[in-house]
Design a protein around this nucleic acid. Sequence first.
DNA 1: CTACTAATTAAGAGTAACTCTTATTTGTTG
DNA 2: CAACAAATAAGAGTTACTCTTAATTAGTAG
Lengths: 145, 145
Amino acid sequence: MKSSKKIKREEFIRICKLHGLKITPQRMAIYEEVTGSSGHPSAEIIYRKIKRKYPGISFDTVNRTLLTFSDIGLLQIVEGYGEPKRFDANTQDHHHFRCLRCGSIIDVYHKRYDELEIPAEIETHHKVIRKRVVLEGICKQCRER
Amino acid sequence: MKSSKKIKREEFIRICKLHGLKITPQRMAIYEEVTGSSGHPSAEIIYRKIKRKYPGISFDTVNRTLLTFSDIGLLQIVEGYGEPKRFDANTQDHHHFRCLRCGSIIDVYHKRYDELEIPAEIETHHKVIRKRVVLEGICKQCRER
DNA sequence: CTACTAATTAAGAGTAACTCTTATTTGTTG
DNA sequence: CAACAAATAAGAGTTACTCTTAATTAGTAG
Ligand SMILES: [Mn+2]
Ligand SMILES: [Mn+2]
Ligand SMILES: [Zn+2]
Ligand SMILES: [Zn+2]
């Protein structure tokens, strides 16, 4: 029986080839790291973690690769307000709650949000590719302090 | 009969006093500029426009003032992905469509979006202050090219 | 109106988060 | 395995803020 890690790697290779991207050790490491981390890490955080196991890697490669992955749909960038970009390898349809105090980002799964209709005056003029609900406020941990 | 411009200024002064902010010519100019502009300008754009009529003003003052105004609810910052922040003096309940190619931001008014319920598992743990729908895609102008 | 003082500002230096350039290395293809 | 386009490392450069400091000023107490 195949491990889920191996299936994930094969899927990764498939999508890279589909987009004409070479399979490099750096890309593998970055993909494993970002899919393995449950949160919504920044490029800097991902860079630091990978550097432990792979000291030669450069920040530029990590950042460029994350943007490439975002272009080909392997991951997404979470909506924000100009702080470091936060990456998300969760490709399921989902939304986010963002804490205005500590910056933590929590996944929100809600079927009604996935089914939102697009207003007619937008739909007739523009092409909508993505729709998301963004919730903001103060998270549990921050409230308790 | 009072002009709407005058009413706007009085309301501005009221809110500033409410938050213990001094009424300075710079603040007045920035507020007039940002409420007068229909789009969703960046700090740099607002700075350049004000500089024409008020050559002595500094970028830092414009930027700091915009952030202050956002803190006290006179305006908001539009959700984005790390480009320059975009400010919005439209205080009505509304949402945004953002063009992924040219970066233009279009207001979306849709009652159903204003009435979105908050999922129970978020509501019970965290305090939600704001909820917004973000649409993304390619705008009419960009499609026609 | 005048003096006082805390808030605000201009100017410019500093910083964070990318983003680009160039020389070198490497994955893929024939 | 030879050829070469793609990718990387290193470091410089850029953008968009953000901070520091000295000067100015709005609001208020007399
Ligand atoms: Mn997520
Ligand atoms: Mn708007
Ligand atoms: Zn928090
Ligand atoms: Zn466009």
